[in-house]
Design a binder for these strands. Structure first.
Lengths: 224, 224
DNA sequence: TAGATTGTTAATCGATTAACAATC
DNA sequence: TAGATTGTTAATCGATTAACAATC
């Protein structure tokens, strides 16, 4: 009666480390550097060199002994491996609250992602859009997704609307959802649901705090 | 010459799953339920029951055969294990951009965290604060942290200011940082740095998209 | 009692780490 | 050539999964 969990695909941890490599490597490239060895990268990133070598292996790139990796090729290889070489336009659904911040943020460009529009049940709350990005009623999502060939959506609606909105997204042709809501969504298997892990990170942070005895309860009467 | 990575502590993955359990369990509690079995939880969460049992074991709670776990005790045990039973006040540093959204967001209460104030190099940009939360110049951080006994900060400054600002935080007595910047911070060992993984999550999402052949490049002329 | 569920102990699996051969 | 660095193969480690005994 065991339930099969989503299969791992390529090593999860390795994929997660790649963006950090990419950041450093892009910086080195901008500085005009041409080659880099894993031992040097290891020193900068404070990671074991063997970890980095194994991770890079995954991208299919090959270095040259005694020289290292060609920086330009290496950056290109990682970008291609992640699909960050071409920008994907995405929609953000649920602008009130956390979504507004994400919509205003434009730091996902390095990750090949451009949030081009927001959708909300009450678009009238954002008459001029958010930082130049328009906010539409959810009813228009299907039409616009088709017209703009959008396949990815960020879901930041309130938890109570999560499943219902997700269903709308799927009907509208969305194939991948970056999900910031807490409930577990029930969607067709061919739709990719990537859970955002902010709360999980807080759990880890909290645990580490407790381990060090920093359970510092907010004390009484400490108003600003 | 191997570099020692931060030791794992209690099983990382297990800790990360606890918030999901807690969400469901709190809901069940609100519905008036009194007991829950891991098999039932497993069904709801679509996870193998053995995983949940092992995870719960970590919190130290004990169930009763044939009955399951006392919901009230279970919720309390998880909250205590994570330190989410008492609210911790935190500062947010770097309000422009992504930080503003986080400051406006108040969904971390369930995780025992309350963002009480923002700090920015240009506080004058936020005359009335953000959603009622005041924004101070960074120069006042030390004074206020001491007065309010704040030990945790969320770091959302631009990458270029990250290290410098982090140093200021440590001097101000901050003992734990939830770090949304990309560079690797160099700080004393006794300061907890928890990296936010948004970009890593995007890497995983991108990879999964590519695996399914959804490399959908944004096409030409698809303006809104 | 009978049977469902917990808790524990063992087995499997995968990832990380180490050792070393290949190579420029 | 000599030596640094890659790439590969083996060993270790830890986490997940399975099996089963304990228990209410």
């Amino acid at each position: 009666m065991a339930i099969v969990t989503a299969k791992a695909g390529p090593k999860l941890q390795s994929v997660q480390r790649l963006p950090a490599y990419l950041g450093i490597l892009r910086g080195m490239l901008a500085e005009g550097r041409e080659f880099v060895s894993t031992s040097h990268l290891a020193e900068v990133l404070k990671l074991p060199a063997i970890v980095i070598r194994k991770d890079l292996q995954m991208t299919g790139i090959t270095g040259t002994p005694r020289v290292g990796f060609d920086l330009r090729f290496l950056v290109a290889a990682i970008e291609q491996f992640l699909g960050w070489n071409n920008t994907k336009d995405v929609f953000l659904v649920g602008v009130r609250g956390f979504g507004e911040a994400l919509l205003a943020f434009d730091g996902f460009g390095t990750a090949g992602m451009d949030v081009v529009a927001g959708f909300d049940r009450q678009p009238e709350l954002f008459p001029g859009g958010v930082r130049g990005k328009p906010v539409f009623p959810i009813a228009r999502l299907g039409e616009l997704a088709r017209r703009m060939h959008i396949a990815i959506a960020i879901l930041t609606v309130p938890d109570t609307d999560a499943q219902e909105t997700a269903d709308v997204l799927v009907t509208a042709g969305i194939r991948a959802i970056w999900d910031f809501t807490t409930p577990r969504l029930c969607l067709p298997d061919d739709v990719i649901v990537q859970k955002a892990g902010l709360i999980s990170e807080l759990a880890v942070l909290s645990k580490r705090l407790r381990e060090r005895g920093l359970t510092a309860t907010a004390e009484e009467g400490n108003s600003i």
